[in-house]
């Protein structure tokens, strides 16, 4: 896994007249947690969507281990080891937790229509073998009691966890997490943070984390990149970024009033 590298070079994405990303370059390597932060509308989700192939950039390149994946369709990119979760959960709501996770194994399975409909030889062996793998993830995420439950009827926090599980089932080289903590209470956030760290440490999976909760970002990430209005305005360790005046300005508006000395004035 050592050689793994995701490189994004000068990405330009726009929708009509709106420039969502202008010349964003960023990279992540194996075993790294890279956080992408920025105010609303900064282009964080657009960046994830472009990496996973949902959006097509006008300019720029996305490279995975040196291979250009910029114009590959999403399902091919997934096959190369890029998994993601969504800001607003995108699970298969009518299916069980087990089926959702097994779908994460789709790219690793081979059985075709004929073998499947006979449930013979390869198809059965494969199903059982991948079921075993999925059970390991279920164990890891501590969701054993709900494996047969229909996903749409689970509470929000658990759905987020199942979605992480589905992404993990793909055995990704890089995991793109779009606000994994959004809408969670403290306990759920702690669980999720623990899972993210464990995945990163045990499997050496690179993680690209988009998150609004600054405490989480500062605690988890090795490096932070800051986007504002589609541009990268800063990059560095959490501490460097926290003290960067440009970042503070992007988050709090032009120079804080207190600094100018007439706080309280309208």
């Amino acid at each position: 896994m050592g050689a793994f590298h995701l490189t994004i070079e000068g990405l330009h994405v726009s929708f009509g007249g709106v420039k969502a990303l202008t010349g964003v370059s960023v990279s992540a390597k194996a075993g790294e947690i890279l956080a992408i932060i920025g105010p609303n509308g900064a282009g964080k989700t657009t960046l994830i969507n472009t990496i996973s192939g949902v959006y097509r950039p006008e300019k720029g390149r996305v490279r995975l281990d040196g291979q250009d994946i910029t114009h590959l369709p999403p399902h091919r990119i997934a096959g190369l080891g890029v998994a993601r979760t969504f800001q607003n959960i995108a699970l298969f709501k009518g299916m069980t937790v087990l089926d959702n996770l097994l779908l994460g194994r789709h790219v690793h399975m081979r059985a075709g229509v004929f073998a499947s409909s006979l449930y013979w030889g390869l198809a059965q062996k494969e199903e059982v073998q991948h079921r075993k793998f999925v059970e390991e993830i279920i164990h890891f995420l501590e969701i054993e009691p709900i494996r047969r439950k229909i996903v749409g009827r689970l509470p929000f926090g658990l759905q987020k966890r199942v979605e992480l599980g589905r992404a993990l089932a793909l055995q990704p080289k890089i995991l793109l997490l779009d606000e994994p903590m959004a809408g969670m209470n403290l306990e759920e956030k702690e669980d999720m943070a623990r899972f993210i760290l464990d995945v990163n440490e045990e499997w050496g999976t690179a993680i690209l984390l988009v998150e609004h909760d600054m405490e989480v970002v500062m605690d988890l990430s090795h490096r932070v990149a800051v986007l504002d209005l589609g541009r990268k305005i800063a990059e560095g360790t959490p501490n460097e970024v926290r003290d960067d005046p440009v970042v503070i300005q992007a988050y709090l508006g032009s120079r804080p009033r207190a600094a100018r000395g007439f706080g309280g004035d309208a």
């Binding site: 996973s52 949902v54 369709p73 999403p74 399902h75 997934a78 096959g79 998994a83 993601r84 969504f86 995108a90 699970l91 298969f92 709501k93 009518g94 299916m95 089926d99 097994l102 779908l103 994460g104 789709h106 790219v107 399975m109 059985a111 075709g112 229509v113 499947s116 409909s117 006979l118 449930y119 198809a123 494969e126 199903e127 589905r166 992404a167 793909l170």
Partner: peptide
């Protein structure tokens, strides 16, 4: 048999959420 294995699951995934289905490699 089809709907308890890989191909059938992919069909249902497309019905439930086509974008997500594509993202996980279908």
């Amino acid at each position: 048999n089809l709907f308890r294995t890989r191909v059938g699951r992919a069909f249902v995934a497309i019905r439930d959420h086509d974008v997500a289905a594509e993202i996980i490699g279908i």
